[in-house]
Amino acid sequence: MQLIPCPWCGPREEVEFHYGGQAHVAYPAESAALSDEEWAKFVFFRDNPRGPFAERWSHAAGCRRWFNAVRDTRSYELLAVYRPDQERPVTT
């Protein structure tokens, strides 16, 4: 069970959090203009890297706020956490 550093509350137990999948996938501005393929990409396709992954978490049993994290999917190590309105930080 990991310790996840909520940007607002500080480090808390993993059980308090809800996972939200890949970050930085914007809802299409003009969904009607998308082809079926483009729409399917938005609905069903997400990156699935083995390594650093920018993803969304929500502190569901805490402040209930969403944030983003870069986490290494091999080691599960959290390399960075940041607010949803921030750019993905550079991690090593």
């Binding site: 809800h18 999948g21 986490r71 999917t73 599960y76």
Partner: peptide
């Protein structure tokens, strides 16, 4: 486990 992971291990809870 809810999160993506390639580590062949999960969380104990």
């Amino acid at each position: 486990d809810s999160y993506n992971g390639y580590g062949q291990r999960g969380s104990f809870h």
